[in-house]
């Protein structure tokens, strides 16, 4: 009964609040800056939001299951750099380069997941360690100066459009639909929510707890790798450190979108709103004539405040 699941989603207050917040923020910003609500600028905002949202897609699955993936920055970065190196500015190699890199991202997630489930390493330590290993490895591999530019096809994918809609947004929409279907209408999604709430209950119910956990990290590795490819197309090249902003942003998007940072509640539809809020916010602050330093301070404070507010009902429920 699909209507049931939709009705319940429609009653999800944190998610509705997040969309309300995104709209309000957008309206306020547009009032200050006339060009902000133009079709062209909305397209740019959507493209910018898609990178956070794609990384946050995998992050949503991981956090829902009660984990966290801190290895997304350098998974993204590694995929971006390897893509430019392997393709060397040519479109043709992308046929195998893109699938290979997405698979490689999945492999990173697989190692994360196995370390956490089979070896019992805590998710924070495991994925943080992975992040450091990847960043070090990439520095050695590239000698610190990757140079190749993004192939034209990837640039088209990231910035081109069909009619009024960017390709990028269509790709995001497709993946978002897939994530929504999986979370809402499949047993895997149901098991994920159970897992994030109470691992033991899930295990005693006969759910393959370890397998579900590993799959979430694999998804996260794949979406981070794919986001790296698209981001390279948007920026025009790959550089060391390009993934760094996406660690906090992806976690914040999930939390602002109404998910519990401890797992078990939330939805990717909320994460989308979270990604939109972060993107509009980044566009609002320069309009207020704030320099880069104070911009970063405000950006950080607002994220922390929103995350604190968003998780407040969850914490109240826990202490009850």
């Amino acid at each position: 009964m699909t209507t049931f699941a939709l009705r319940r989603l429609g009653q999800n207050r944190p998610i509705l609040l997040a969309y309300g917040g995104a709209l309000a923020l957008f309206a306020v910003t547009s009032a200050f800056s006339p060009g902000f609500a133009s079709a062209n600028h909305i397209r740019i905002l959507l493209i910018q939001a898609s990178f956070v949202a794609l990384v946050a897609l995998g992050q949503s699955f991981v956090i829902l299951g009660g984990g966290i993936d801190l290895s997304v920055p350098w998974t993204l970065n590694g995929s971006a750099i390897l893509m430019t190196l392997f393709a060397d500015g040519q479109n043709r190699p992308l046929v195998w380069v893109i699938p290979l890199l997405v698979a490689l991202g999945g492999l990173i997630g697989l190692v994360n997941g196995l370390g956490i489930t089979a070896l019992g390493v805590s998710p924070i330590i495991m994925t943080l360690g992975m992040n450091v290993i990847l960043s070090g490895g990439l520095l050695v591999y590239t000698n610190g100066s990757p140079t190749a530019a993004a192939p034209a096809f990837v640039e088209t994918l990231a910035t081109g459009r069909v009619g009024p809609v960017p390709y990028n947004t269509l790709i995001w929409l497709a993946l978002a639909s897939l994530a929504t279907v999986v979370l809402t209408w499949t047993a895997f999604g149901r098991h994920l929510y159970a897992l994030g709430t109470n691992r033991m209950v899930a295990q005693f119910s006969g759910i393959a707890v370890s397998r579900v956990t590993v799959v979430t990290y694999v998804i996260s590795g794949m979406t981070a790798a794919f986001a790296g490819i698209l981001l390279t197309g948007y920026v025009g090249q790959a550089y060391l450190g390009m993934g760094d902003p996406y660690l906090f942003a992806s976690v914040a998007a999930v939390a602002i979108g109404g998910a519990s940072i401890l797992g078990g509640s939330g939805h990717y539809l909320g994460t989308i709103a979270g990604a939109l809020i972060l993107t509009v916010l980044a566009g609002l602050l320069p309009i207020l004539n704030l320099n880069t330093a104070s911009l970063q301070v405000i950006y950080g404070v607002v994220i922390l405040a929103t995350v604190a507010l968003a998780t407040l009902p969850g914490r109240l429920a826990v202490t009850r």
Binding site: F4, A5, A187, R190, A194, A202, F204, S205, G206
Partner: peptide
């Protein structure tokens, strides 16, 4: 204390780990 999952409803708990699925592998909520 480990029988039920708090954030799921009664039906979801009754079928946790053994969900019924339709031909398209979707959960058969009805």
């Amino acid at each position: 204390d480990l029988a039920l999952c708090d954030n799921l409803d009664v039906v979801q708990n009754m079928y946790l780990g053994r969900e019924l699925r339709d031909r398209l592998w979707r959960l058969d909520e009805a």
